[in-house]
Structures are given as C-alpha cells and as structure tokens.
Design a protein around this nucleic acid. Structure first.
Length: 430
RNA sequence: GGUGGGGUUCCCGAGCGGUCAAAGGGAACAGACUGUAAAUCUGUCGGCGACGCCUUCGGAGGUUCGAAUCCUCCCCCCACCA
C-alpha cells in the first residue's frame, strides 16, 4: 500500500512539511500518532474544517492513530493567526458546549472505538497551569525576538488594532499542547492549516529543546475556490456540518454548484473515491462534468449526513432540476444511484399554509416573503416585477397575483421558485 | 493622562445646512446567455398593497422653517506624545 504521505500528497492535502525525508521514514514505520487541533469557536464545524478532518480519516485508514484535540483551553485565549481583528473571547461554558458539538461531528469521520482514535481537550492540562512554573519551564525556551517575526503575528503587528498579550501567548500554549501529547501519547506529528505553520514549528522546537527528539509538522494549503473565495463562504454565512444549521439539501446544493475548474480537485480532497478514477474527471466537460458534480455532492453529503439524507438530497435535486442518467463508467466506486428512479424529494424546503387562507387567496409577493424566498415584501415585489418568480414553473407577472387552491397540484403542493435554483414548497394544511 | 483624527445604509467608502434613502466600488438578488459552472451585458439593492408615507448616517439633547451635515454632553476606535 502506498504511504499515507503519498496519498495525501496526490490528493492535494500537503502544503509544507518539516524534515521531509525523516518524516516519510518515520511514517513508514507504521502505527504512528498524529494530531490536529480544532477551535471550539462554534458548536459546529463547517466546510473549512473538512480538510483537516479528511486528513485524519486518511491517517486512520492507513493504520495510524489520529488525535482530534479540541481547544477547550486555547479557545479561552484565541488564536490571532491570520486574523486582522482580535476575536471576542468566549466564556468557558460556551466553549464546553461547542467542544461537545464538535466531538459528535468528528465521530462521523473517525472510528473512536478501542482507542483507534482519540478525542482530547486541552483544557485538561492548560487550565491547570501555574504561571510562574510555566514561565520558568516552558517560557524560557521561547525567544520573543523570534516570535514577533512569525508570519502568524505579522498581520496583527502591522494592523492598527495591534496584538494583545493574551493572544501573543497562543503560540506558546499550542507548542505546549504538542509537548503534552508527545509525553502522554507519543504523538510526534502535528498537522494543521497553513496559518498554523508558526505554531506547529514552535511545538516541534519545544520538543527538541525539552527532549532532544524530533517531532514533525505538516500543513495543508488554504483551499480556495477557483473564483478566489474561501471554501464554504456563502452569502448566508458558513456552510456547516450540523444539519440544524445547514440542511443536508443546502449542503448538497453547495457542492453541486462547484465551479467547473474545482470538481476534480474537490473530489480528491473531500471524498474517498480512488485517485485513478478522479483523474479521469479532469478531462470532462458539459453534461458529464455536471454528473461528476452530482457525485461530488452525493459523496460529501453521504460522509457528513449519512446515506439516507444524501439520497434524499439527490432525489430532491433530480425532481426540481431534472436529471440525467449518471454513466456507469464515471467514478464507478461511487455508490450514487445511477438510474432515474423514484420521485422522493423530501428535502426541498417546505412550509404549511392553512387551506382556509388559500381559499381566499394569498397575494404572491406575501407568499414569497413568508416562504423565505425574499427578505421583505418589497424585495418580493421587485423579484416578481423583474420576472424572477415562478409558481409551479410558470413565471408570474403581477406582484399581487392571488395564489389560491387552484394552484395546488395533484399532491396538494405549490412549488415556488426564485430565480433558477431556489425552491420552496407550500403544502396545504387542513 | 495630553494632543490630533475618526465612528455613514451587508462591507469598503464619499457626502459636511435644503436638490439625501444618501455618490462610487464590492458583495448579494433577478433578467439575458447557459450545463444548478465561469465570464459578460442589463436591472435591482431600508421598510410599507407604495407616483405617496414611515424609519435610518455611534448615543442623548439643542440651534434652525429645514440637520448625516452646526452646537453641547456622553460612549467607542485610531495615531502621536507621556
């Protein structure tokens, strides 16, 4: 089997490593332990964390032991890396809550049974530190001259707002985490986003200074879309892994809307489909490329939300947008259904309206506003006046056209649509 | 603590007594073109059943026929000095 490093490299996970050759030799020995830190700044992870998560999953699949370290302690301090503004400090309780939510989500990707992967919280050791002993044992190994040169602080040092002392300590605490995991679990590899390079190297050096042993670091590239956007950023905010924040349908839609140029790259990063199949996608265009996007969306939704939700989202997309058969030879390892069967579209957003009020009729612009397809009544009016509103596939031309029970289809449903891709179903309620 | 410069609609950023719901850009939304892609062009972009009405320019007062614009106090940010 190819080394996990090769696999990660081929899939585009690796930006930079320390001690390249030594690292490869070390990993070849097998059964190593590595870790990545996750910030508990929200109760859910979002797409931006997918690269670290997938890398841990690859590690585990190659027989290594991943540690997901939730930053319950470092979260109290706040990482300034790459940030232009100081983050607001969260309360200890909020961080605890968030840590719990994150643990749940990671369990979808990693097998934590029998210690095959570990989930730790650095609050366990960080909150117990004593200031003076810490300064004497750990702090003395850090040169402020060097620290202020670190890229991760640069933005803040150059900014008007400056860098507060609490944030300045972040690097030291993260280095200490690495040391602690080295001591407790023989963890000698830390991975992280490219903005973590300085923090990771600080840990590598601390371990060398304290124990005269080599530790390693790997950073991932910052994944941006071909149009230059950071992954997972939409107008409505981040794309979350928590179905309560981003529905499986929206999650699926996010991926189907992937830019042409990104499809193969994203298949490599965000699915486990084999690379030799993925390479063939690079030369596709037109309809086949769109099928590849469906597979990308299906596979990523499957990983986060499970098979049933992935099927629902896929079927919903078929019924709303129409579909085409997905060729057998395209990414054959994917378990996406390849024939057009079923018309189950449970996961399109919907809401209920009382049958009574439909008898009287509801002005279209009000209904669009209520359904959440327009931010205000005025916006709904504009939408309609500009020809961007559809009822059951028919463009409507008057903002106050009454929507009545006449508009219900055989299934007692009215399909509203804004623009090309935003759907909402209205169901009559007796 | 002192001195100076600031806080404008989702973001950046003009406006500095009426012509201001507030230039310009970005983002967003819609139309055309398409492949639920990109690029491009066009329109929209505070609220309201709407040629009018209502609420916005850090907060509270005041001057004025009239204030985002002037005055007073307060809050917050930044730079330099200490």
């Amino acid at each position: 089997m190819a080394s996990v490093i090769d696999e990660l490299r081929q899939r585009g996970f690796i930006e930079q490593t320390t001690h390249e050759q030594e690292l490869e030799d070390y990993i070849e020995q097998g059964n190593i332990t590595c870790y990545i830190g996750f910030d508990p700044t929200a109760s859910s992870l979002h797409i931006g964390s997918l690269v670290p998560i997938m890398s841990l999953a690859h590690m585990q699949r190659h027989g290594h032991r991943p540690i997901a370290l939730v930053g319950g302690g470092t979260g109290l301090v706040g990482d300034p890396s790459g940030k232009t503004e100081m983050r607001k400090l969260l309360t200890a309780e909020a961080i605890e809550d968030n840590a719990r939510g994150i643990k749940k989500q990671l369990a979808n990707f990693l097998d934590f049974k029998q210690g095959r992967a570990l989930m730790l919280n650095n609050a366990e050791w960080l909150t117990r530190l004593e200031y003076i002993p810490f300064l004497r044992d750990i702090g003395r190994h850090f040169s402020v001259n060097r620290m202020i040169k670190a890229e991760s602080y640069k933005m803040r040092l150059d900014s008007e707002e400056g860098l507060s002392f609490i944030e300045f300590n972040y690097m030291i605490l993260q280095a200490y985490d690495f040391l602690e995991l080295f001591n407790r679990h023989k963890c000698r590899l830390q991975m992280g986003g490219s903005d973590q390079w300085g923090n990771i190297v600080a840990g590598v050096e601390l371990i060398r200074k304290m124990h005269r042993q080599t530790a390693f670091g790997i950073t991932f590239p910052l994944i941006v879309t071909s149009s230059g956007e950071k992954m997972g950023k939409t107008a409505k905010g981040a794309v979350w892994l928590d179905p309560a924040r981003t529905s499986p349908y929206d999650y699926y839609q996010y991926w189907v809307n992937t830019d042409d140029r990104d499809v193969a790259r994203f298949l490599a990063l965000f699915t486990f489909l084999p690379m030799d199949e993925i390479r063939k996608v690079e030369s596709l265009e037109g309809a086949d490329l769109n099928s590849a996007k469906s597979i990308l969306a299906f596979e990523t939704t499957l990983l986060v939300h499970g098979r049933q939700e992935a099927l629902n989202a896929y079927q919903a997309a078929l019924s709303m947008f129409g579909g085409r058969e997905i060729p057998q030879h395209l990414l054959p390892s994917s378990t996406i259904p390849r024939s057009l069967a079923g018309d189950d579209d449970l996961s399109v957003p919907y809401s209920f309206v009382e049958a009574e009020s439909l008898k009287a009729g509801i002005p279209a612009f009000k209904l669009f506003h209520q359904a959440g397809l327009a931010a205000s009544g005025g916006a709904a009016r504009r939408l309609i006046e500009q020809g961007g509103a559809y009822v059951n596939g028919q463009r409507i031309d008057a903002f106050d056209r009454l929507i009545t029970e006449q508009d219900l289809n055989e299934e007692r449903v009215i399909v509203l649509r804004s623009g090309k891709k935003r759907f909402h179903k209205i169901k009559a309620q007796a």
